[in-house]
Every structure is written in C-alpha cells, then in structure tokens.
Deep mutational scan, measured.
Amino acid sequence: AVCQVIGMYDYTAQNDDELAFNKGQIINVLNKEDPDWWKGEVNGQVGLFPSNYVKLTT
C-alpha cells in the first residue's frame, strides 16, 4: 500500500469498479495516479474511490 487514509464520509459505490466504505473506516491506498480517484482496498475489496472523501492518517 502507498499509504492509509480514513473515510471522512460514507461512500456508496456507483459502479462495479468503485470501492464502498464507511466514515471512520481505514482504507489502504494502492494507487494515486489519478488525483481525484484513488485505488484502494478495504476488507479484501479493491476499487476506486474519490480522494476528497478521505483524509490521511497521521
């Protein structure tokens, strides 16, 4: 993983390639090539999510 982030809001996947997560959930970021849509993993599920829905862990 590149880094870990925390969901600031609940996110519901809109497409099959997206990653759903809940507020407060830890997401392992796998790829930040696109500044707006990062690739991440939660509980074995991998997908894209909007980078503005998360904050970096300290």
Rank of each mutant, 00 (worst) to 15 (best):
V5L: 01
D10L: 04
W38V: 01
N43S: 09
Y11P: 03
F49D: 07
L30H: 04
V46R: 08
Y11G: 05
D36I: 12
A13N: 02
N31L: 05
N28K: 13
G24T: 05
L19T: 05
G40F: 00
A20C: 11
Y53A: 14
D10F: 00
E33T: 13
Y9D: 15
T12W: 05
Y11I: 06
D36L: 13
G24D: 06
L56K: 13
E41R: 03
L19E: 07
M8C: 13
E41Y: 01
D17Q: 13
V2Q: 07
D10V: 05
V2Y: 10
L56A: 14
A1W: 15
G7N: 00
Q4V: 07
G7Y: 00
N28A: 11
T57W: 11
M8R: 15
D36E: 11
V29Q: 00
L30M: 08
N28T: 15
S51C: 07
V54T: 13
N31W: 10
L56T: 14
D10A: 11
F49N: 08
S51D: 02
E33S: 12
E33P: 05
V29R: 01
G24Y: 00
T57D: 13
V29G: 03
N31Y: 06
G44P: 02
G24M: 04
V42W: 02
P35L: 12
G47F: 00
V42Q: 05
D36P: 06
P50C: 05
E41K: 07
E33H: 08
Y11T: 06
T58I: 06
Y53S: 08
L30R: 04
A13M: 02
E18S: 08
D10I: 01
N43V: 03
A20F: 05
A13G: 09
L19C: 05
I27Q: 00
E18R: 02
D36C: 12
G7K: 03
N22V: 13
A20K: 10
L30Q: 10
I27F: 02
V2K: 13
N28R: 13
A1G: 11
V54G: 02
Y11S: 03
T58W: 07
D34Q: 07
N15Y: 07
K23C: 10
N15W: 05
T58P: 12
W38Q: 04
N43W: 00
W37F: 09
N31G: 13
V5T: 06
F21Y: 00
D36V: 13
A1M: 13
S51R: 13
D34R: 12
L48F: 15
I27D: 04
D17C: 09
L48Q: 07
L30G: 00
Q14N: 09
V46C: 07
V54H: 03
Q14H: 07
W37L: 09
Y9V: 15
Y9L: 15
C3E: 12
I27N: 03
Y9R: 15
I6H: 02
S51N: 07
E41C: 03
I26Y: 05
M8K: 15
K55N: 07
